[in-house]
Amino acid sequence: MEKDILKVENLERVFRVGSEDVHALRGVSFSIKEGEFVSIMGTSGSGKSTLLNILGCLDTPSAGDYIIDGVSIRNLSKNELSTLRNRKIGFVFQNYNLLARTTALENVELPLFYNNTVPAKERRERAEAALKLVGLEKRMEHKPNQLSGGQQQRVAIARALVNDPVILLADEATGNLDTRTSYEIMSLFQDLHEQGKTIAFVTHEPDIATFTTRKIKLRDGQIIEDAPINTQSAAEALAAINLQKED
C-alpha cells in the first residue's frame, strides 16, 4: 500500500472578521497518497484557498491536525514552517510570481538559496535539470519579459520542482492562460505525474479537473465530493484543438 504524503484530520479554520467568526473550513478530512494527482475544486468562498494555504504550510489550522510526510505541523514555529516549505513543498501560482529582470535559471535557483545544505555548483546543476524537465533548456538565460505566459508558468513549475518536494501545490495554475496553453501545462503536469510526482491542483474549471486522477469538491468549508475520476489525456485534448483549427 502506498504511503500517505499528506493527511488532514477534522481541519477547521476560523477567521475573526470584526466581531464575527467566519468558518472557512468546518472539519475537513482526507489524505493524499504518494503519486496521486488530485484536483481540489470549489466556487469562491468554498474554502479551497484556505485549505491550500494550510496544505502549503503558509497558514495553520484553528483545530484539527495536518501531517505532511510524517510531520505534524501543529506545534511548529514560523521558522520551522518556512524550512518545511523549503524542503517538502513546491508552489505553482496563478500569476507565476517570477522575479522580474532575473533570468529563468536564477528564478529556478531561488528556493535552493534558502537551503544551506546545497552548494552553489549543485544549485546550478539542479536548476538546469529542472528547466530541462519542463522543456526550457534553450531559454535558461531569458528573463520573464522575454517569455510567453506558458513559458513563464513552466519556469515557475521548474522552480517548484527544484527542491524535489514531496508534493506540488498548484493554485489555479492555468487561470491566466488560454485554453491551448492550459492544456499544454496540464499535459506537463500529467507527465510529471507519470514520473511519480504527487500533485494537488486547485482549480474552479471543471475541464481542467478532468485531467487529474481524483477530485475533491468543497462547498462552504466542507467536502461534498471526493472520488476518483475518469482521467482524460491532456495531450489528446491538445491534439483535438489543433485538429479543430485546421478545419
Binding site: N86, R87, N97, L110, N163
Partner: peptide, 16 residues
C-alpha cells in the same frame, strides 16, 4: 511585496 511573499513561500525565514 509580492517578491517578499514568494520568498517566504519558498522557504525564506523572516530573518532572511
Amino acid at each position: 511585496t509580492k517578491e517578499i511573499g514568494l520568498r517566504m513561500a519558498i522557504g525564506a525565514h523572516n530573518r532572511d
